[in-house]
Design a protein around this nucleic acid. Structure first.
Lengths: 212, 212, 212, 212
DNA sequence: CATGAATGAGGCTTCATTCAT
DNA sequence: GATGAATGAAGCCTCATTCAT
């Protein structure tokens, strides 16, 4: 019964990863013991080790996913036609951050993923990949609105992509640590800084993409 | 060697803190053992524990300082008269990041500090304080240039401060992890987004503050 | 070897406790390292710590038992019908001391238990309880022989119980330290001091006065 | 200046021993660190180590003294002429125990001394010596009252001495641990057990020796 | 497949003692 | 003589991982 096994295997892995995510979000990678994961997942040590060969593998499996919700959301947002103005993209992204920062939210792991990547070359790979992927999307967006003439034709797309990407950690951290930032704060900030108005549209350009 | 000066004591604390910083920057808080710190500092276990009562206390002493170079630099930059344009402030800050990200650079600890604060309430205090302090400086800057008429009089100073503060983690991370961002990238990005031209000045406004 | 019986668990606890007892009897609580206990028990550190959360808990588990053999023996002795004369009770108790003072004898721990209780409030509880329990038995015995008319009806049962209880530490210490006391010594001493003869048995009834 | 030096030396030693006694009485030998002794004595590490070569030496110096007050008192009491009756001797001794069980009282160390002697051959010597000395005094007393005809001429002096000596640890422990025994309790107990009435004297024989 | 008891290296910290000043 | 900073061995305990059942 290969299919059933594979399914079962996958389901178990998910069960473990979700339990581990809750633990890690609560206590951090190092303060979480495997015992915590066993307890949270309701599985035994042997069971968990049947699906993952080590704690690091569990962390690794989670590491790559950390930025996934943001990446997916960004892809979705910027590929709308016509594309939203920058402020709306930012609003969409920050709203996503809020939605994914709960006890089960992958984004809770983001700061830990960054810290780990800073210090463990082998842990860095999935994080770097994710970052590069998000950055590529920002670049795609910048190119698109540059083509649309919303920003100067000689605007440095790479530099702008780096900066826009760079906005997200700051929002995540301020949300997680200070808890007093809203999507509106960043959206308004961007609006002020990059007050794009698509030619021939009303003052606010395309409508909000939130909940779209 | 008894009866030493208070100065000597302070120097020892610094010696330990610097050694610990190097270790932590290299391996992270958790992967660094106290033995590593003893070795790196050239002191014995007993000596180190004469000055700090625990590993956590060493981490704590470092945590509060992590953002200090940025904070000091920002204060220095924004209080120039006349104040630099945003792009130049950003250039100054990002340049500072580069300067303080070496093996002894406190900023190497920033991501770990964030991660820790996310997960350990008692470690969070110094980090939050530091963040609040830097944000207050950004706010001060925004108010100043708003008063100067460089940005609209109805600009939301708080929101803008949050966004500008939010730029720094993104730069730090991209520098530490991807290593391919330059002060120029962010400065140009900002210039594009917030192309302030102080009334009555030449195109580029106040000169670069780098190296000032 | 998972899924073992509760009985197995209990046996392991006993195994550890017995090993610890041997160590403690030999070297004392403080001079015994946990490593000693691991070695003596033939278990690993992790195994021992699965059953006891700390060295103090092991000591505590032993502390309460220290006086148990004496308490049980005393209960057994005094509840005989008719009760033995005081000298015989003392002989029985001191004989028990001798029997339980070997390398595995709980009584070897008694002096350490007393010393610890003297100095660590949290360790005192089980010791005090045990002492109170034994004293209550002595009081029960005194009341019983008073009712039988072996001692004066106005004899202070509490005072006498305190004194009889007080005899045991002195025997234990002299046995453990000087090694030259026998049950006979104390039995004869008591016989001389409290020469009870149940009425109708011999010519010397209770309350007979020495030197008369 | 040899005399001054010797005096000074002795005074310092006493200062240290008294401080150590307070510490040991409070926390026990092992829980007391040398640092505690430095602090309590107001001396530096170097100073203390000038007068004692090790912690064990300090403990040893105290160990021998532990029973000294009892021994001295017993000698004083039993050598009165005529000797007090047993109940009064016991009353005198237990009263002494009460007087020497305060925070500076050497008797506070007795249980620890016994425990240590039980386990460390080299620490046992002074304790055994002290015990033997006190026992010899009891024997002397027994012989004396036997000669006076207060107890049967064929009474086993050694056995009785062992038993009387054996009473003291029991009183000390009950006082230190349970705190509810009085000299009266033991005196009355003994009176009941060994109601000596010196021939030709009033009911109570020689008066109380307390405070004599 | 699952269980969970067992392993043991390694982490943090204490503390008696020394010795340069 | 006095000081107290420094030493470093050794202690207690945790925890990722394995494997007999």
């Amino acid at each position: 019964m290969p299919r059933v096994s594979a399914e079962h295997l996958e389901r178990r892995r998910e069960q473990i990863l979700e339990a581990a995510l809750r633990c890690f979000a609560r206590k951090g990678f190092h303060e979480t013991s495997m015992q915590d994961v066993f307890t949270e997942s309701g599985l035994s040590a042997g069971a968990v080790y049947r699906y993952f060969t080590s704690k690091d593998e569990i962390i690794g499996a989670l590491l790559g996913r950390t930025m996934l919700p943001l990446r997916n959301r960004l892809a979705e947002i910027i590929r709308a036609d016509p594309p939203p103005v920058p402020a709306e993209v930012i609003r969409g992204m920050t709203t996503e951050v809020l939605a994914r920062s709960g006890p089960n939210g992958l984004l809770r792991l983001a700061p830990q993923a960054w810290a780990l990547a800073t210090v463990q070359p082998e842990a860095a790979a999935p994080v770097l990949e994710a970052a590069a992927g998000v950055r590529a999307l920002w670049r795609e967006y910048v190119l698109r609105i540059r083509d649309l003439g919303w920003i100067p034709a000689d605007a440095d797309a790479d530099a702008l992509a780096k900066m826009l990407l760079g906005l997200m950690p700051g929002f995540i951290l301020q949300h997680l640590l200070l808890g007093d930032v809203t999507p509106d704060d960043f959206a308004r900030g961007i609006e002020l800084m990059l007050p794009v108005t698509p030619p021939g549209t009303a003052h606010n350009g395309p409508g909000s993409i939130i909940g779209e």
